[in-house]
Design a protein around this nucleic acid. Structure first.
Lengths: 356, 356
DNA sequence: CTTTTTTGCACAATCGATGGTGCAATGACT
DNA sequence: AGTCATTGCACCATCGATTGTGCAAAAAAG
């Protein structure tokens, strides 16, 4: 270690070593030195000193002075789910490619927590905030607005700044239609055989339900209200809903529209406690994609939201100086059963060679 | 908005408004005011002003002064995977409960990227770093050491600071034994029917292989070298390995030990291109737990690493002033097929009530 | 009514980097 | 030789919060 082992070198250290002033050192190391007419040889000297002393700028100091931090925040409902973790992965790649540092935090779908978390991020002077799947996007907006922080909504729209979301109506339609058509013509699905479980009273769920009902009306001719069970996003709430249904009817519906992979986990929990034979005439549609779920022993039709598309669009829109207050819809994709799609990891993994 | 809409209030603003000095304001708002013998009524006044002006401390300024930031880092290989995203979720909860801000970043299992990422985090003066699944933990250690940053290894051990890892040998044994015993006595598994796929030359893989081989030797009497295929962690590498095997043998092995859920995705990719009938006499063991994988149409035995246990232990050890250079092993758990376990989300979701 | 103690707070340096401004030294030009 | 422009850099205030120190005013003690 060139360094004694402890404290990091500062521009003042390098200033002493190089015989230049701190401002010169600063200019050399942050790239503004040409503008300041620093001699090439001076710059060279300082750069080499920085190198040997492993200098890295203290970003808190820089951020304090410039009131920017190089941090870009992503506010998620939760981490532990393939949809949001893929979002995080993709977000990270985008932020890194701009030379900034991603900071991904979850707020449990709790409006209060969302605001507090945004406050915290703001106190670190983050440069931008991507608000994903927030229960109260406009609440978070106020916090950002008050701090003059650029932000954008993803996945669930707000009314104060632009949003980039999945086309949930169309996705709901696609998925519902695919479920219905998956049943053979000789044993067609009845209207009261197709239920929607999960989700809550948010924009995404409402739109999916709208698509669901439209297609049911269109293809099955009717659309009973009792086929909609919004159980919230917790897996265990969904499980209880399935249990309740099973108690009531002695069986499950033949067709399911499950509103998210988390709700789908509730179905697994139900299934773990009931014999497999009960699920031979079952088609599940899930609004989310998970590779393992796609291969379950009954037909699972999934919707994969276009994560790369949404993130890319969001970065595009957030850079626009005067973006119009608009909801950008990104088309999701229908995934037939037994399909293994590639994800954001596949872009990374090239570098990883088998050992030995 | 009490605030005009723009710049955040500072202690100087409050100092003017309250008629006290900035240092008094600071002391009141950071809790050290009793030590400084500030009058209760003064404190009260300042607190109420802070409230109405929505004051929040600028953490870059605080961090600069105190050379602490309140940020705690978690360095992951990747986000997009249930194991690591559960880790992130659990880590977040722990950090939050200490009143600090979690910052989770991934480094793609690339040693160079790992060091750079650690450097970046250090430049933000993070207070602690949890190094999870790093390809080169000791490389990251050097960076941390040079900056005087407390750190600890998780999941993959290093040699310079304490590590908290899964007991991979025991987990490997458990999983291998469960795979073997899952075959009925009348059609027992032959030694060359049980293969291990995935992983690379890291501590975890080596230990799992050691467990695998020990159990094979013990229960099946022999343990051919060609049954070990370390393909790296990329899904597509694993897929190619399965294809290659299939080419070569015209079938898959009857028993699989798959080294991670990411490798398991490679198996799915393989299966998507081959008829389902090929997989009737197949038992898969996977070193990772994923609820959907557990319900696949063939027996899937999984290992769930004790994430909560590992994180809790890591926080405990990292707080110890002079922790001994030790590898703490946390026992993983064998998960039989068709099991839906609860995860870190279940602790959160209570607050989420079904709507309507 | 002094002297001592306690109370309550203000002052000022500091953390590390940034960027506007000023000024000496050098070279160019008449 | 004298004027002017250019080069190359140093100086200093600043960002917002923290913290050691000092010192008046009030209270207690004598």
């Amino acid at each position: 270690m060139t360094n004694g082992g402890r404290k990091k070198a500062t521009i003042y250290d390098l200033s002493v070593l190089s015989g230049s002033s701190p401002s010169t050192v600063s200019a050399v190391l942050n790239g503004t030195w040409r503008k300041r007419r620093i001699k090439e040889s001076t710059a060279e000297l300082i750069r080499s000193l920085a190198e040997t002393h492993q200098y890295t700028a203290n970003r808190q100091a820089r951020g304090l002075r410039s009131s920017r931090s190089g941090l870009v925040g992503l506010l998620l409902p939760v981490h532990d789910n393939r949809y949001f973790s893929s979002l995080a992965q993709t977000f990270e790649a985008h932020v890194r490619s701009k030379g900034q540092c991603p900071i991904v935090v979850s707020a449990s779908r709790d409006p209060e927590e969302e605001r507090r978390t945004a406050e915290t991020l703001i106190s670190y002077s983050i440069d931008e905030l991507f608000i994903c799947g927030a229960t109260d996007p406009d609440g978070v907006h106020e916090v950002c607005e008050a701090a003059g922080l650029r932000h954008i909504n993803i996945d669930l729209p707000g009314t104060k700044v632009p949003s980039v979301i999945s086309d949930n109506f169309e996705g709901g339609r696609l998925l519902t239609e695919a479920i219905i058509r998956h049943f053979p013509a000789e044993r067609p699905l009845e209207p009261d055989d197709l239920y929607l479980f999960g989700g809550r009273d948010d924009h995404a769920t409402r739109e999916r339900i709208r698509g669901f009902r439209a297609v049911k009306e269109e293809l099955l001719g009717s659309d009973p209200d009792e086929c909609i069970w919004p159980t919230g996003y917790a897996a265990d709430n969904a499980r209880r809903a399935f249990e309740a249904f099973y108690e009531q009817h002695g069986k499950l519906p033949r067709g399911f529209f499950v509103n998210s992979s988390i709700n789908f986990e509730g179905l697994l929990r139900f299934m773990a406690e009931h014999p497999l034979e009960n699920f031979t005439d079952l088609v599940v549609g899930c609004y989310d994609y998970d590779p393992f779920a796609s291969f379950l022993p009954f037909p699972v039709i999934m919707i994969r939201q276009n994560i790369e598309g949404m993130i890319a669009k969001a970065f595009e829109v957030i850079e626009e100086p005067r973006a119009s207050l608009q909801i950008h819809m990104i088309e999701p994709q229908l995934v037939p059963p037994r399909t293994a799609l590639t994800g954001p990891l596949d872009a990374l993994m090239d570098s990883e060679m088998p050992q030995e």
